[in-house]
Nucleic acid binder design. Structure first.
Length: 815
DNA sequence: AGCACGCCGACT
DNA sequence: GTCGGCGTGCTC
């Protein structure tokens, strides 16, 4: 007897045992998709994770219904990669499966239904839903549950199907058809037998009463004889508006011309010219030598290149090399939106051997790319973190660009893995080299490089020997004391902007806080406007004239009087980017001042429009949140101002200073990219803060040493490993008790100084869910693995209490 | 995760 | 008297 361990696209621990029917025994392999029944009537697409002959003792396994792949859809490297992720990040394989696969490749109850042959339906005794379904099946023959949702309320679907199955009107179609069909494009050609058997004059005389058709026929004949191998698209015939659909249709009807279809990719690929690589500078050549050395020792690389140092050139060299060896490249980016430069360059070089994979693709497009990767048709895949899961055959190089970017580890979507770290594991599995690149590497990566876990390659000069921007600190306290300020700006800062305007150069102003004012407070009674779903004050947005909760998105109108004491003395406190924008418009009325933040970029093409405006130098001053630190590579930005730099630093988070440094450095990189005359003004109450001082001195090594010293002192990563456990529930008392309980189990196994909490999260209630946190600070090294086993065990004990099942438990490893 | 089963409160 | 809320248990 043969059995298979199958994983299902459900958030359940482990795998499930199914019996392999004899007739499938020859075909079944690890990594294949199988159709299985799970629970009452649900059918899922599972993945074969293991094959064995151990008969289960406590239950009778169900049969595998069918195998859905001819060859394994997952290569062994991916299976190992998933196992690592599940183990390291303490998450279920099912969660990974859900995240990794496009939905059409994991049809859940995409059970296809069909009418039973010879069924005689008595419509009199059917209810509305049953009628709809029968009628739909009469039109479409096959239909799946997802499609049925369009016309039957979700909760009635199963009832309706069951009832019709009971009546023997319909049945389940065992042949689960793949939902995906490649898009087809219509082509036309003159029939072979026409060319063979007819004289042209004969045809033309038959068409003489239809001049358009005659011309069209001649046009097609022309194309066909001139370029016999190039198919003629039906649509291209109508391009100059000379012919219409009716003309070609007549020719087809008369049997002169035939229409045929070819599969076409839904994603359009570049088919322009390809071009060669640029010559490297000597600094880049040196860097490349180090990269090569590391790769020859099977070591991964941290490429620390200051802004505009031309990291891309290094990437391109290594990509070329890898492809010449016949291996494939994965190029990871934090967000697909910011890919212009690299994409353009790669497109020019590799044309259609380039693929894209990111969260914005439709399901069809995803499957398309999936298929291409599976068939090894692509040389380079550019993508975001979900591109790690494609079924690569022969990966030789993984590049993680902007490796410090927090988008590699969003906190909202499970499984909670860091794509930067996962990429290195995937590289191991494929024996592929990995380059992590950034102008501002994460402290963790820097530390790994110092510990020799990564090869550290530093590119310290800008491309073309352009100077890095100069930093200047402005002591805002002093400026205020000597009355040299206007609102949030010192006169010195304003003078710099004015000069920059005079030189017709552009200025970037960074203020990383959305909205107009942080808080609206009643001066009489102290009332502040809280979000009704969260324990968070709402932010005032003047532009849209409303209060917004930045956590749950809830909006409310701005109160004119205090809702509590009806006083009209409502005070706006805390400066947001809208206010900075407004102040600058008033201070420089003749200048064009634009704002760039998520709120102003929400409209369709708002980003594209502003991007062009800046590119055309219609915008003089760009005020924005962290958004402006990415992707704005323009030649005439000479000044960057950060008027309230302190607001970046004092967030209660041990990574706040690191992020502030990264943000300030990234945004500084926008200045003086060509002129080398870029200037960055940082206005602060604390110019003696080491981060500001070190940035000003451009002491890159110093700043990382500072961060590492701080982290060591307070036992934070990379010197310890953090695991954050978050429990959420609608009822505060319940989640409080549950987290106390989990805390006590953990304390049973782990030393006291490893456990912080449980305590209410800094936002105690979010979206009407109360949240409690337990933070585990664990030692590195082999003890970490032992402790993690204890944590796993604690979770098991916790989950035994069924009363706590409704509590959402989120686990963030490497918090 | 989804679903069935079962136990309690608010309605025809 | 019934509908439907959600707490509990189970799925190979």
């Amino acid at each position: 007897m043969h059995y298979a361990q199958v994983i299902l696209p459900l958030n359940l621990a482990g795998s499930f045992t199914y019996k392999v029917p004899d007739e499938l025994l020859d075909e079944i392999q690890l990594g294949m998709r199988v159709l299985v029944q799970f629970g009452g009537k649900k059918i899922y697409t599972g993945i074969v994770w293991d094959l064995h002959q151990n008969e289960p003792e406590t239950f009778v396994p169900k049969d595998i219904i069918n195998i859905l792949d001819q060859k394994p859809i997952l290569p062994i490297q991916q299976i190992e990669f998933w196992n690592w992720l599940s183990d390291y990040y303490l998450c279920n394989l099912g969660e990974i499966y859900r995240f990794a696969f496009p939905s059409s490749l994991k049809l859940e109850s995409e059970t296809y239904l069909k009418l039973k042959p010879n069924a005689v339906v008595d419509f009199q005794n059917l209810d509305v839903n049953e009628m709809y379904l029968i009628q739909a099946l009469e039109v479409r023959q096959l239909i799946n549950l997802t499609d049925i949702e369009a016309f039957i309320p979700k909760k009635d679907i199963i009832k309706t199907i069951n009832s019709l199955i009971d009546l023997q009107y319909i049945e389940i179609d065992e042949q689960v058809a793949e939902k995906y069909r490649a898009k087809e494009v219509a082509y036309v050609r003159i029939k072979d037998e026409v060319l063979k058997n007819f004289e042209l004059t004969e045809i033309l005389s038959q068409l003489k009463r239809a001049p358009k058709q005659k011309d069209l026929f001649l046009a097609i004949l022309d194309k066909q004889t001139e370029n016999p191998d190039s198919p003629i698209k039906k649509s291209e015939l109508f391009d100059d508006g000379f012919f219409a659909h009716s003309h070609i249709k007549s020719l087809i009807d008369k049997n002169w011309v035939e229409e045929y279809f070819l599969q076409k990719d839904r994603i359009d690929y570049y088919d322009g010219d390809t071009e060669d690589l640029e010559e490297l500078t000597s600094a880049q050549k040196q860097a490349l030598v180090l990269v090569d050395k590391a790769f020859s020792e099977n070591k991964n690389v941290l490429l620390h290149g200051v802004t505009s140092s031309g990291k891309t050139h290094i990437y391109l060299e290594k990509i070329e090399e890898c492809i010449n060896e016949g291996r494939k490249v994965l190029f990871l980016l934090p967000e697909i939106a910011l890919t212009k430069q690299i994409t353009q360059r790669l497109e020019k070089k590799y044309g259609s051997a380039l693929g894209f994979y990111h969260q914005k693709l439709t399901d069809f497009e995803r499957v398309e790319v999936w298929r291409k990767v599976k068939n090894d048709e692509l040389k380079i895949l550019i993508g975001t973190r979900n591109a790690l899961f494609l079924p690569y055959q022969n990966l030789g190089l993984i590049i993680v660009d902007e490796e410090h970017d927090s988008a590699y580890r969003p906190r909202e979507v499970s499984p909670f893995f860091n794509a930067k770290d996962a990429a290195q594991i995937l590289g191991q599995k494929y024996k592929a080299n990995v380059i992590l690149g950034s102008a501002t590497p994460s402290v963790e990566s820097y530390f790994a490089a110092r510990k020799d876990k990564l090869e550290y390659v530093f590119l310290g000069e800008r491309f073309g020997k352009v100077d890095l921007p100069k930093f200047e600190l402005i002591n805002f306290k002093e400026a205020q004391d000597s009355k040299n300020v206007s609102g949030d700006f010192s006169f010195h800062l304003l003078e710099n902007i004015r000069q920059n305007l005079e030189h017709k150069n552009q200025t970037i102003v960074l203020h990383n806080r959305r909205g107009y004012a942080n808080v609206v407070e009643c001066e009489s009674c102290g009332y502040v406007n809280y979000c009704s779903n969260c324990d968070v004050v709402m932010t005032y947005h003047k532009y849209s004239n409303e209060m917004k909760c930045h956590y749950c998105g809830q909006r409310a109108s701005k109160p004119k009087t205090c809702p509590k004491c009806h006083s009209e003395n409502l005070n706006e406190r805390g400066v947001g980017v809208e206010q900075i924008h407004e102040e600058l418009q008033k201070l420089f009325p003749e200048a064009e001042v634009d704002r760039m933040d998520v709120d102003s970029m929400r409209k369709k093409f708002a980003y594209e429009k502003l991007y062009e405006k800046i590119e055309d130098r219609e915008t003089d001053i760009i005020v924005g949140t962290q958004m402006i630190s990415k992707g704005l590579d323009f030649d005439h930005i000479e000044l960057v101002a950060i008027p309230r730099a302190d607001s970046l630093m004092y967030v209660q988070d041990f990574r706040a200073e690191e992020r502030a440094y990264q943000l300030m450095t990234q945004v500084s990189g926008r200045a003086g990219r060509v002129s080398g005359q870029g200037k960055v003004l940082i206005q602060t109450y604390n110019p003696q803060n080491p981060v500001f001082e070190l940035i000003q001195r451009n002491d890159i090594q110093g700043i990382y040493e500072y961060f590492l010293t701080e982290r060591k002192k307070f036992h934070y990563p990379p010197f310890t490993k953090l695991i954050m456990i978050e429990l959420k529930h609608r009822r505060e008392d319940k989640v409080n008790r549950a987290s106390q309980f989990l805390g006590s189990i953990l304390r049973k196994y782990l030393p006291e100084d490893c456990i912080l909490g449980p305590e209410p999260a800094s936002i105690a209630r979010l979206n009407n869910m109360y949240q409690f946190q337990i933070l585990l600070k664990l030692p590195r090294g082999k003890n970490y693995l032992i402790f993690k086993d204890y944590i796993r065990q604690s979770f098991e004990e916790f989950e035994e209490i069924s009363a706590y099942k409704s509590i959402k438990k989120l686990v963030y490893v490497d918090f």
